[in-house]
Write a protein that binds this DNA or RNA. Structure first.
Lengths: 223, 223
DNA sequence: CTTCTCCAAATTATAGATAATTTTTGATTC
DNA sequence: GAATCAAAAATTATCTATAATTTGGAGAAG
């Protein structure tokens, strides 16, 4: 057993690189040299180039012909753009998912919220947050929509991690609970409008401090 | 001069293949054999594989490891999904674009609508239709959003071409004109809601006739 | 100190080879 | 004649080696 679900080398590489970029281990603008990466993964450059194409499509890397591939940079404008796209698409997904939501799913989503509240660091919080959103949206059963949302979520997480590089304090996610309450009571429209506002909080007036650091309070809700 | 804007062979291949898939020249389920394609384009298989990754990300092809790549199939459910995503994202784009629209842009969009009304075949109509949408949305200046809309537009066009394989009759696009009128009068919200309804007409009850052919009238508006 | 030339490094792409896997074909059996 | 299983062919996925092109910088000339 113990067979890995990643079948091609290229997909494994793109997954690992995407994770590193999102977590901030590879900083914006950094050049991704195919030969180095090939060496690290013990492969040739061919699957590496395929992985680059995938990252490019996800918006995590940009490729300039004959000049190589580098980690995509992102500014506040793009963060807002991603937040608005997520808001629009997650609302759509929730509208379709609502009628398929079961109490069991809502309980699992509530558990995810609790885990987020208890998270020790930003990575644990993000993992729980992502699970919450996935749980309530997946029942829409629209694969293309869910894939797009997933890519946007990764872009959001990247911003979140970069902003919260240092310092993390526990908080309680009231929006998640309000969404769940509305869903339990069958008020799907209200749940959707809370979700819309909730997601759009990302990238709102980060008020960077002197040294480029960012004030954590500006992101009271980053779901 | 006459230098082509496509710099890498891989991007050229993916563009040509995407066009063929959208136009229906490559039918759903067809296997894309890398060596054959490599031979056709006079290249090796490496850029072909890169092109495959791009097509996969666009949802035009699906790749099964060790079993190769085939043209993605699509059913009515996915067409509706794409239509709803387009509606959500185009509304978002228009809301941001509205304040940057100039009379010159609106005139160009009106000209595109006229060309669509006069189109001799479905390909000419689609080209004009696409130009209309691009013209009024591009000023939102959100590159990621516009790229997503473009991919969705390609998926829509694919469905349109497959449904309208035989038979094409001229029509007048009242929705486009209503959108332009609302924009000229500064009623962006109304323009957005017409656009939302307009785009969602795609994939509504195609009522296929006996032989799998589709009744053109079912797609009175396919924008 | 600026500008120019030239060289090294990196990317893009070609060609050919190999192992693994899928598909097809063919032979054998019931 | 149909079904089944094995051999053969085709295809994918990958590696190695190499050519062409381009960028970027090091060092020389003004």
């Amino acid at each position: 057993m113990a067979k890995e679900p990643e079948d091609t080398i290229a997909s494994r590489i793109s997954r690992v690189l995407a994770d590193r970029i999102v977590r901030g281990e590879l900083s914006a603008g950094l050049r991704l040299r195919q030969d180095h990466i090939a060496e690290e993964f013990g492969t040739s450059h061919v699957p590496v180039r395929e992985a680059f194409r995938r990252l490019e499509a996800q918006g995590l890397a940009i490729s300039e012909p004959r000049r190589g591939v580098r980690v995509a940079s992102f500014d506040l404008k793009e963060v807002r753009e991603v937040a608005e796209m997520r808001a629009a698409l997650e609302v759509l997904a929730l509208r379709h998912a609502a009628k398929h939501l079961t109490p069991a799913i809502l309980d699992a989503a509530e558990e995810a919220t609790r885990e987020g509240d208890a998270a020790a660091d930003v990575h644990a919080w993000e993992e729980a947050n992502r699970r919450f959103h996935t749980l309530i949206l997946a029942p829409c059963n629209m694969s293309r929509l869910l894939a797009s949302i997933d890519d946007l979520h990764a872009a959001s997480a990247r911003f979140l991690f970069s902003a919260w590089r240092s310092g993390w304090e526990k908080r309680t996610d009231h929006d998640h609970r309000a969404i769940l309450l509305a869903l339990r009571q069958g008020r799907a429209d209200e749940a959707a409008s809370i979700l819309e506002r909730h997601v759009q909080w990302i990238g709102r007036a980060p008020k960077s401090t002197q040294k480029g650091a960012v004030a954590p309070d500006a992101f009271a809700i980053v779901g």
